[in-house]
């Protein structure tokens, strides 16, 4: 019935004249989609955790842009599908075929070139974000057995002012502050100051992932990976292991405390005075309880002993993200 009236989007293939009312309706609908897409791009920010690093606004901006474009594309495709399903159904006893439109080269070119330009534009945008994030420092192969010794051989000209060594294990996180001679199982960082991590793993792959920072880097055994970021908001956040690392992978979490530079310095000072004690490792506690069970489940690698640290910190306090 509507096949010939053409009160819709420009028909694909043959092109019956579109009525003035149809054109207005079409433009109105596209305008509505644009508004909806813009609105979704703004809502997108709310799906993400608080922005706690200088990377977060850049990543969120890209995500918001993609959400907007994506909403428009999805909305467009759905509009066509919905229109067809409602308006272009065969009548109940209509066994006949529709008008055979086999294709349209001009349309093919349009819907090849426009998406091509669009995705390339998104890729260029994303590459620029990559460059300004500059998270990835040098990556070097090290001897796994002795990560500490290796630090001595680290070229001095590349040693950043503030470097925190992150040691990932099955299943605990240890953070060492070589200058202050402090170690901890809770990561403390001064707000608005660039920090470089040196990521090493004692056993398997782990993922250094702080959702509030929007950053993640796998920790690769046998490598020391430099990783740069700048925290931008004071608060308590979660660090989660993001690369499957075995039985207690899910429990391999730590807290990240971003505080004012004064508070940070005070924390370092008190920490350095603390005696070494076992750090946090949920896995060790759970493993102990599990050993008491008659039928504990399948075999597991036993957790590494908790690292000896000045400050165990906490991973049960309420966190912002």
């Amino acid at each position: 019935m509507t096949n010939t009236s053409g009160r819709s989007k420009p028909p694909v293939g043959s092109r019956p004249a579109i009525s003035r009312l149809g054109l207005v309706a079409l433009i109105g609908w596209i305008a509505l989609l644009v508004v909806l897409s813009w609105w979704m791009s703004q809502v997108a920010y709310r799906w993400l955790p608080v922005q706690a690093s200088s990377a977060a606004p850049l990543v969120d901006g890209l995500f918001s842009f993609e959400t907007g474009v994506g909403t428009f594309v999805f909305g467009g495709v759905l509009s066509v599908m919905a229109w067809v399903i409602v308006m272009h159904r065969a009548e109940k006893y209509d066994e006949s075929d529709a008008e055979p439109i086999e294709g349209n080269t001009r349309l093919e070119v349009i819907w090849t070139v426009i998406p091509l330009l669009l995705v390339m534009a998104i890729a260029v945008y994303a590459m620029r974000v990559n460059t300004s994030l500059g998270v990835l420092g040098p990556m070097e192969h090290i001897h796994l057995a002795n990560p500490v010794e290796d630090q001595g051989g680290y070229p001095a000209d590349r040693l950043p002012a503030e470097q925190v060594e992150v040691i990932a294990r099955q299943w605990s996180w240890e953070f060492r502050y070589p200058e202050a001679n402090v170690s901890s199982t809770e990561l403390h960082l001064p707000v608005d100051q660039p920090v470089t991590f040196r990521l090493v793993s004692d056993d398997v792959l782990h993922g250094f992932y702080i959702p509030a920072f929007r950053l993640k880097q796998d920790v690769i055994p046998g490598r020391a990976i430099d990783f740069n970021l700048t925290p931008s908001r004071e608060g308590r956040y979660r660090l989660r292991d993001s690369q499957f690392s075995g039985t207690w992978f899910a429990a391999n979490q730590a807290d990240v405390v971003v505080e004012s530079p004064e508070a940070y310095q005070a924390w370092l000072k008190t920490a350095a005075a603390q005696p070494l004690q076992p750090g946090l490792s949920d896995a060790v506690a759970e493993f102990g309880a599990r050993q008491q069970l008659k039928n504990p489940g399948w075999a597991t690698v036993p957790p590494a002993p908790p690292p000896q640290v000045n400050v165990p910190g906490s991973n049960t306090l309420p966190h912002d993200a």
Binding site: V12, V80, V84, I85, H88, R89, D97, A98, G103
Partner: peptide, 11 residues
């Protein structure tokens, strides 16, 4: 989409 457009759909 071009195929279903102005077709005679049977759901």
């Amino acid at each position: 989409l071009g195929t279903i457009w102005r077709g005679k759909l049977r759901l």
